[in-house]
Design a protein around this nucleic acid. Structure first.
Lengths: 151, 151
DNA sequence: CCTTGACCTAAAGTTAGGTTTAGAAATTAC
DNA sequence: GTAATTTCTAAACCTAACTTTAGGTCAAGG
């Protein structure tokens, strides 16, 4: 198979460390768009290795797949992304991460206060109803401290 | 219903802001153990309000329910936990949170490096295979950068 | 040519953390 | 004493992010 024919899904899986099934799933989610060869098999560009790597890194940072798709849409569609293109959209990740760290740090500081006062379970506790509550990752509780209880 | 009869599940739900179904679910997961009244209905101690509050806070910090159950097992079983008891087990949360902040901070710093060098997708990139990779929250990817790819 | 391994699709299964539903029994309110 | 709430259990359903399975096709080696 010549280089210009692109990578088969198994090869891409090896290069990225992802499972073949995961790559197909990402396609279904609109994160990557291979073409098909004469026999109907998926073929990928070498640049897709980088694309999937970005997906994996963004996941580590807590983005959902729809969010990642959104970020990736900032890449040029008409040409292979340059390193500069990648650096550009990585800045969005950086901001996202800064915010997460910020939120967690504030939660931690509130916990310090609560350890001091032992007020757990009271509505006046800063932890109990923080405005900047951590966005629940994935399928967390639906009603996480949503309504202000009376006591 | 006299005070000594305990709280009905709906009352506990109001006090904590949780859904009734969530409280029953937590019982199934071993996080809380009400007794039953003559009619077979669940009855809770007032201290359980605090217990559930702790559960909610620990969830914000990223602990899973099994982890929270583990932490709660550090409470005395033979008596109502004192504020001091709660402060004691809160220290574990603090450590957990510190570690999470640490991991994220290092990830962020690695990202900074990568923005500089544009090496995304290369195995030598510090982001690509960090030893301290963020624990996947909930039902994330199974093979998150698990095996070292060749290129 | 034939076999083996990689690939295809569609659908069902998995985990975490719950919610919803259905039908019945207990409690509370008037 | 009856009507309206609450609560009960068990089982099914939900989302995210995948994996597994089943049954069939494509591609590469000898």
């Amino acid at each position: 198979m010549a280089v210009s024919d692109g990578l088969a899904i198994g090869a891409l899986a090896q290069r990225t460390g992802l499972a073949v099934s995961a790559i197909r799933y990402y396609e279904a989610q609109g994160l990557i768009s291979p073409w098909r060869n004469a026999g109907g098999q998926r073929r990928y560009q070498r640049a897709d290795i980088r694309r999937l790597s970005f997906v994996m890194i963004a996941q580590q940072f807590g983005l959902t797949l729809p969010e990642i798709r959104e970020v990736l849409s900032g890449l040029p569609g008409n040409r292979t992304p340059t390193p500069k293109d990648w650096q550009e959209i990585s800045k969005g990740l950086r901001a996202h991460l800064d915010q997460r760290i910020d939120t967690l740090t504030r939660l931690r500081d509130n916990l310090d206060g609560c350890i001091g006062c032992g007020c757990l379970s009271l509505p006046k506790c800063a932890l109990y109803n923080p405005d900047d509550r951590a966005k629940s990752n994935g399928s967390g509780p639906r009603y996480l401290m949503g309504d202000s209880p009376e006591a």
